[in-house]
């Protein structure tokens, strides 16, 4: 009997196809794992960078900002903010929050210590050197 597309055939294509592409993905991910530390200069992840990252995570910065385009679209991109504004401006800005200007978007005051601010800037500086295939298109992020 010449069978037309049976259910078990469809199931086999599903299982086989999923396994097939999963293997390919795992191989590609293995390769990506070798490449990423080179592209983001993992060797420059100093204790300050790691501490800064932890502060950025635990204050939910991506709840308003984006980092390399990921996060929320309420506030500017942080991936290249170090190159856009420089470390001193960033520190002063964080200290000055909230601006309290009527109607403007507000950022909370987090009461960071000086060494915490240094860590955050170190992290943002590290972020700005990641090879992101030339994204964002310009300094405005």
């Amino acid at each position: 009997m010449q069978q037309v597309f049976t259910k078990s055939m469809a199931r086999n294509i599903f299982l086989g196809g999923a396994a097939f592409f999963l293997i390919i993905y795992l191989v590609l991910t293995y390769d990506s794992w070798q490449q990423i530390p080179k592209r983001d200069h993992a060797d420059q992840m100093t204790p300050a960078v790691i501490a800064g990252k932890y502060l950025v995570d635990t204050h939910d910065c991506i709840g308003c900002h984006t980092i390399n385009g990921e996060g929320s679209y309420y506030a500017p991109e942080l991936g290249n903010v170090y190159k856009r504004r420089g470390g001193a401006f960033i520190e002063a800005w964080i200290r000055a929050q909230p601006t309290g200007v009527a109607g403007r978007r507000q950022m909370p005051q987090f009461n960071f210590t000086q060494s915490q601010l240094d860590d955050i800037v170190a992290y943002l500086k590290w972020l700005s050197n990641i090879d992101t295939n030339n994204w964002p298109p310009n300094i405005q992020g």
């Binding site: 999963l22 993905y25 990506s32 490449q35 990423i36 592209r39 390399n68 385009g69 990921e70």
Partner: peptide
């Protein structure tokens, strides 16, 4: 599965 790559363009993953 490979389509996940459209999230990897500009986050620092390989080209």
């Amino acid at each position: 599965i490979i389509g996940i790559g459209h999230h990897y363009y500009y986050i620092g993953a390989p080209a």
